[in-house]
Nucleic acid binder design. Structure first.
Lengths: 129, 129
DNA sequence: TTACTTGTACTAGCATCGTAGTACAATCCG
DNA sequence: CGGATTGTACTACGATGCTAGTACAAGTAA
């Protein structure tokens, strides 16, 4: 179990945000499965050369989001609750919010909804450009 | 010419960013037309209850982006250059970058490209929801 | 030239935020 | 019980970033 996640201290995005995103991504893509245990806060802190508190904050935040569960003295695990209907609704809401922000930013840059759709469509097959 | 732009000091987005976006938006939507003069840095600073430097920074940044032109002792104006081919290419590049960030964030949240497309498609006619 | 208007440079203060350090609390397991 | 392991609370430091203040520079117009 080496090199689970990787952080870039030089990157402008704060460490805790990088880690949050990495964990979410790992779960979303199935690299971390429901019920699986995550590394200990101290363990992960050492591996990532980061303070234990930073990891703890991330775990706590993800628990509030309902995608992790933590039991003291035992560890932190991938929760199953993010699969049920209630959380899927929340998830949908987050998608809407993300798209809202996206549209706002785009329109401030002078792009129309169709510009965005075109650009997104062009990503369907080919990665490059 | 009152209430050109409006800023929310309480909003988490910094004032300069709010103003930048507002100006870009005004130009993109035609509320500010090519060649039109913007308020003086001091004028606008007073109206928005903001320091003149804040406005100046925004004007300077927008000039670097090529969408404003400023002449000392005269004022600041909407540039015409953002219409020509060269700048349209830059603009296209920015769209790609925006979409890149968007896709990254979305995938970290577990959404697929198709999820995004669906959500965007549903915005085509109706605003609500 | 001189007074006036415009944008600009430089600085400092202030707030916010991210991270680390240290000490604490809950749980497990022998 | 008692040691070990887990997550947690609290604090403080450092860095960054935003904004304001003040003084300056460049251009205009009489």
């Amino acid at each position: 179990m080496s090199q689970i996640f990787s952080l870039s201290p030089s990157h402008p995005m704060p460490l805790y945000a990088q880690l949050t995103r990495a964990i979410r991504f790992a779960i979303a893509t199935g690299r971390l499965r429901v019920g699986e245990q995550l590394p200990t806060v101290r363990q992960l802190a050492v591996e990532l050369r980061v303070n234990a508190n930073t990891v703890a904050k991330v775990y706590a935040e993800l628990e509030r989001s309902g995608i992790l569960e933590t039991r003291r003295g035992v560890g932190t695990f991938v929760s199953a609750s993010h699969l049920d209907g209630n959380h899927r609704e929340e998830h949908e809401k987050h998608l809407k919010e993300l798209v809202d922000r996206f549209l706002e930013e785009a329109s401030a840059m002078g792009f129309s909804l169709d510009d965005l759709l075109d650009q997104l469509q062009s990503r369907r097959k080919k990665e490059p450009n």
